[in-house]
Design a protein around this nucleic acid. Sequence first.
DNA 1: ACGGAGCGGGAAAGCGCTTTCCCGTAAGCT
DNA 2: AGCTTACGGGAAAGCGCTTTCCCGCTCCGT
Lengths: 382, 382
Amino acid sequence: MRAHGSRHPLGYALSNRYSVPMPTPTSDAPAARPTGPVTLQQVAERAGVSSATASRALHGSSGTRIVGEELRKRVLDAARELRYVSNAPAQALARSTTSVVGVVVHDVADPYFAAIAAGAMGVAREHGLLVMLAATFRDPELELDYLARLRAQRARAVVLAGSGFADREFTRRLAAEVDAYRADGGHVIAVGSHGIAADTVRPANRAGAALAVRHLYDLGHRRFGIVSGPRALTTVRDRLDGARRQLRSLGLPLTPSQVVDGGFTREQARTAARTLLTGPSAPTALVVLNDVMAAGVLAALREDLGLRVPDQVSVVGFDDVPFAADLNPPLTTIRLPLADIGTQAMHMILTGPTVTPRTVDVDAELIPRSSTAPAPAPAPTP
Amino acid sequence: MRAHGSRHPLGYALSNRYSVPMPTPTSDAPAARPTGPVTLQQVAERAGVSSATASRALHGSSGTRIVGEELRKRVLDAARELRYVSNAPAQALARSTTSVVGVVVHDVADPYFAAIAAGAMGVAREHGLLVMLAATFRDPELELDYLARLRAQRARAVVLAGSGFADREFTRRLAAEVDAYRADGGHVIAVGSHGIAADTVRPANRAGAALAVRHLYDLGHRRFGIVSGPRALTTVRDRLDGARRQLRSLGLPLTPSQVVDGGFTREQARTAARTLLTGPSAPTALVVLNDVMAAGVLAALREDLGLRVPDQVSVVGFDDVPFAADLNPPLTTIRLPLADIGTQAMHMILTGPTVTPRTVDVDAELIPRSSTAPAPAPAPTP
DNA sequence: ACGGAGCGGGAAAGCGCTTTCCCGTAAGCT
DNA sequence: AGCTTACGGGAAAGCGCTTTCCCGCTCCGT
């Protein structure tokens, strides 16, 4: 099998240490894998060619250089026999480029991010990219950290899928890190507003929230309540702002007591909802700033408060995560094409960075289901 | 990104130290970043030390070598000023080890995998590991592919979180790839049975399914239906087998017509449920092999078939994904501590590979909710 | 017959780190 | 003093690739 057992691998491989001619002990074990990962050099030796040729044969690229039919086959065979896979770090170092992209989310377990990530990963697969997924668990500090680590990895691009944080100082630091990354040849894509100049995929958060309000208003609701999220998140700000503006333009300006923070989690939202629904003029219409919280709100209404949805209270969610239609009752919500967001971000990576940042807008759409209905008969006002 | 032609052939040796007193041109541009990524060399120059010292100062490790207080500070300052992050691929090459671990799942958007991934990522974060997430979309071929790519990346370990495939030939190839990976110093952790010898986290799929059956039996149900998944998945086989054995030992052996394939997706399961519930002696008890499908089944029952759950039909799911409690009605299900599974797998990575494969068992638990109730009065049997 | 032009292959220079030697200096002993 | 140890620092050898040169061929046109 080994046609070149007698080759004398002088020069390169041995040049460093062994000046004394020695019998190259490894060379007669047929397909026995030597210790440690197989190197290109070993493949080359087995094929009886130089490592340069082996490299060219295996990665055809390198300019227009073509390896002869015969040699190419020998190399390919040798590689297969040895189960050779090239050392990606070494390759990255030599080429000074990698095929990994980073995706930074708040939490993979959150269906919103899971869906976006899934969209991104689909595209990554199609294009042979590897995805490094980083979850910040909503800690801005970690976001910065991961960005630096991704820069260290020489990730070709990173998608900042989590919401931005509305914090002056943080934004400054983020921008600095992003600049550094870009200066190194990296490409940053933001989902939503992060306060940085970068290619961005911008979901219609404001318009979506306005849609939700409008829908409820058209159903006759006049008493609104909002289950918000952490105000520091730009996504929250945008959605809240969209709702607020729409309400104001409808002549129903929002007061602080109408808004509670549901922490973007089911449990907190459930608690928050109880607060909101307590008191004399409790709202009949709830705009919940994401579906995960809406699930909590629905639970609160049904189990804690004993209020019927949509008969007594209407609620609309946001995002249209997969389970929205399975809630009780099926949730009217503002759909964001989540997988698309991931896909779009990925496509921006594929087309590479441009001189001026691009923005692709992603529309929101109202998906009416059974959690909304006409407002109940008005309370007995004399 | 790469400055070639202009390099002095002896660049390295010369530029290293200024034997000739020279004004070190870079040092007076305070934070002006040179072109391309900053290198250790540049940091060293700015700090006026050798790259060896710079390396030691930045990564303290290297044996017991300690860098003097003074120099260390100079290096750290220089690094900060230049926003230096070390080139991970280069580092990986030199150290021949990385801090990335791979996690291979079927689909991130599936809450089952999302939860496992989240658990794993939490641990990864605590230990400074970077996670490469690969989604196979249930294509075995891709699983092999990713494993090879992860090997190429010199990922320190990989977690095979997706279900195994019960296919002789595939298993053989997987084993070969895993062996190659291990021979290269990698560490493989499997979740569930993959037919390979590796550390594994083993969820109680059989026992869980038995639990589900038993629960329904105890409620008086005698006519069972099972919404299964693709038979090729070992997870499906195990769960199905668990249910089947339990039924048999209860004197109710399963016939082929009692089992339908719900494809592990909501939509397919919805369709499958319609089939199952059609016919003379339709089941009153449904065991659905995962919660995602259960959502579809519930929808079918409620919207397509007009059957009340649990009054007319009881259903129990599997996994207890986060939204299970929010379904209509809240789903009785077999809980698997998903995040734990991810955590455990990660911990096995941290403790490193052992001579003989370890197994950690993960228990399943019945979570009774409102989708199950005593069997309806038996059909009029004379 | 002869001087390119092309082509296919190999030698070797890097890529940016880590780590092994090696070395000068300052302590620590006798 | 003389000698051994540490100790802290630098030079340089690699790590496993890619890619630039360079070189020997064969093939052509004239």
